[in-house]
Amino acid sequence: MSQNLPLPPIALPGQPLAQSPPYAAGPGTYTTQNPTRTVITASVAGIPRVHADKSVSVTRPSPSHPLLLLPEVASTVLARVTRLNPRQATVEIFAIQGGGDGIHGGGDGGCVCEHTFQGVIRAQDVRATEKDRIKMLESFRVGDVVRAVVISLGDQSNYYLSTASNSLGVVVAHSDAGDPLHPINWRQMACARTGIVEERKVAKPI
């Protein structure tokens, strides 16, 4: 499926790859405007490829290193709850599961961040229905791991996240006694050992 575009086997930052009218810039590239034409240039060191939709991208192979990703709007993340108050839950984002552009071809699994980012889930973003009657203590507890989606870059210290979807919510939780909980339905989790049921906003298991 060659596009008849002669690409070098390895591209380095600053290396021109293609022209813009027929081709579009994908991840790992940027465009520069010349008076006569627009050139697509590589912005990372990696392998350039042309895709079916005529976009040119440069991807880096990433063996074992945790990847260089920032949470972007619409990317799914895994985060741990660190603080809780009636209006919002403060979380620490430690893994990003794609959803944004893929410059770094690390596969579709979770990509762990080297550095954790702080985020916030506001009460109105916990679930899609009955937003005004949410009780945070029935949705999350400190120490839970939640799957959420980034809705905004937020302000200087926090990303804004939302769990308002069936597949989003608590994925790993522990009871007050320290036992692991497993999900029963979208709002309850139970402990295997004692049978105690606790309330959470649970993510639908895949």
Partner: peptide, 23 residues
């Protein structure tokens, strides 16, 4: 980069010597 590619297997290695198409 080439070292990283080799570590990931020969498949990638072949693509590098090709013309970088989407196959």
């Amino acid at each position: 980069l080439l070292l990283g590619l080799k570590e990931m297997g020969l498949i990638r290695g072949k693509a590098v010597s090709g013309d970088g198409d989407a196959a």
